[in-house]
């Protein structure tokens, strides 16, 4: 994977979205620290607190060679959506989407309470794919949670999604910077699984491309 030095755009706008409890904040921290490591300025806006409890959550990440940006991305200005839960991507595009957006989707659904109760319908994956393909310039669907569960920890799915984002080559992200950032906080035995998950994410995007 060739590493670029700067993002393809300034500012480059990322939204990581999912459901409270999925590790959205953790994913946005890891990704942002990788970008800071590359000498970029990062502004992160996120919601936590009450919304953490099973609600929709979002982190807005603004990447720029210079300065601080608004912690909320303006309407229609997201460059890439990384979604830990499929329908959350659809929700995010309603406000922030535009015809050139790219969307990386973890395919594992988390059903809203209303769906479990039978008050609302959850669309099947082909329908979600069709919707996202219509609204985005490019989409990738990754079985991150399922692969991570077979590795023994569903949270590794988030790392696969970061690997998948790196594989798009729009940002200066690679395995080395990932290992450097995680290595500061994680013991070595856990680092191996994380690097494996990162590589799997890269591989899943490259296979689909």
């Amino acid at each position: 994977m060739a590493t670029r030095q700067q993002p393809v755009k300034d500012p480059y706008n990322i939204i990581i979205t999912g459901v409270g409890g999925q590790g959205n904040v953790m994913a946005s921290r890891v990704l942002s620290n990788m970008l800071v490591e590359k000498g970029l300025n990062v502004t992160i806006g996120e919601t936590f607190g009450a919304s953490q409890r099973g609600g929709s959550v979002m982190s807005h990440i603004r990447v720029s060679p210079r300065g601080t940006w608004s912690p909320q991305i303006p309407k229609g200005q997201v460059d890439v959506v990384v979604t830990l839960e499929p329908i959350e991507a659809v929700r995010v595009l309603a406000r922030y989407g535009n015809p050139s957006v790219r969307v990386l989707t973890n395919t594992r659904p988390i059903y809203p309470a209303g769906v479990i109760a039978g008050e609302a319908d959850y669309p099947d994956l082909p329908t979600i794919k069709e919707t996202l393909d219509k609204l985005a310039a490019r989409t990738w669907f990754i079985d991150a949670t399922d692969r991570a569960m077979s590795m023994g920890n569903p949270i590794l799915g988030n790392i696969m999604m970061i690997g998948a984002l790196a594989a798009l080559e729009e940002l200066p992200l690679d395995r080395d910077v990932f290992a450097a950032v995680l290595g500061r906080t994680l013991p070595e035995e856990k680092l191996d699984d994380n690097i494996k998950a990162f590589d799997l994410g890269v591989e899943m995007v490259n296979k689909a491309s």
């Binding site: 099973g54 809203p112 959850y122």
Partner: peptide, 10 residues
């Protein structure tokens, strides 16, 4: 396509 996600107890 994106049914409302109400806050819930964990």
């Amino acid at each position: 396509g994106a049914p409302f996600r109400d806050q819930i107890f964990c």
